[in-house]
Amino acid sequence: MSVETSVLARSKLFAGLGSNTANMLLKHAEIIRFEPRDFIVRENQRADAFFCVIQGYVRLFKTNEVGRAADIRICEPRDTFAECLIGGGGIYAYNAQAADNIVLARFNLDGVRRLAEEDRALDRNIMQLMADHLLVTMECVASDRLQTAPQRVANYLLSQCSPGKPSETVRLPYQKSLLAGKLGLAPEALSRAFGSLKKAGVTVRGRTVRIDDIAALRQM
Rank of each mutant, 00 (worst) to 15 (best):
T21S: 01
G184P: 01
E4P: 01
V202R: 08
T208Q: 15
L115E: 08
Q175C: 07
G181T: 03
L178G: 04
R145D: 04
G67H: 03
F14V: 10
R124T: 00
G16Y: 00
V66G: 00
G18V: 02
L217N: 06
C161P: 05
I40Y: 01
V53I: 08
I74S: 00
A69D: 12
G206Q: 06
F51N: 04
K27L: 12
T169A: 10
A70K: 13
G90I: 14
L197Q: 02
T5F: 11
A93S: 15
A154P: 07
G16C: 00
S159I: 05
R37S: 14
L25I: 08
R152M: 07
Y156G: 03
M220F: 12
L60V: 04
V41F: 05
A193Y: 09
D119N: 15
G184D: 07
S177Q: 12
A200E: 11
R42I: 03
E168Y: 05
Y94T: 13
S162Q: 11
Q147M: 14
L17Q: 05
I72M: 12
A47G: 10
A200C: 15
P173E: 07
P36Q: 09
L158C: 06
A142T: 15
A215C: 02
L8V: 04
R210S: 12
E139P: 01
K198P: 01
L134A: 14
A215I: 06
L60H: 03
L115A: 07
A98D: 01
V204E: 15
R78H: 10
K165D: 05
V41P: 07
K199G: 04
N95V: 04
K198F: 07
L104I: 02
Q128Y: 01
L179C: 08
A96R: 01
A98T: 03
D71V: 08
E83G: 09
M130Y: 11
E76T: 12
D119C: 02
E168N: 03
A180G: 02
D123S: 15
A70H: 11
A69V: 07
S177V: 13
N44S: 15
P163A: 06
P187R: 09
C161N: 06
P36N: 05
D123N: 14
L8Q: 11
L179E: 06
A98S: 12
A15S: 13
L26V: 05
V53S: 01
G90H: 14
V136Q: 13
G67F: 04
L104C: 04
A149T: 02
N20A: 13
N20T: 11
D132M: 07
A142S: 15
H133V: 02
V53W: 03
R124V: 00
P77D: 03
M1C: 08
F81S: 02
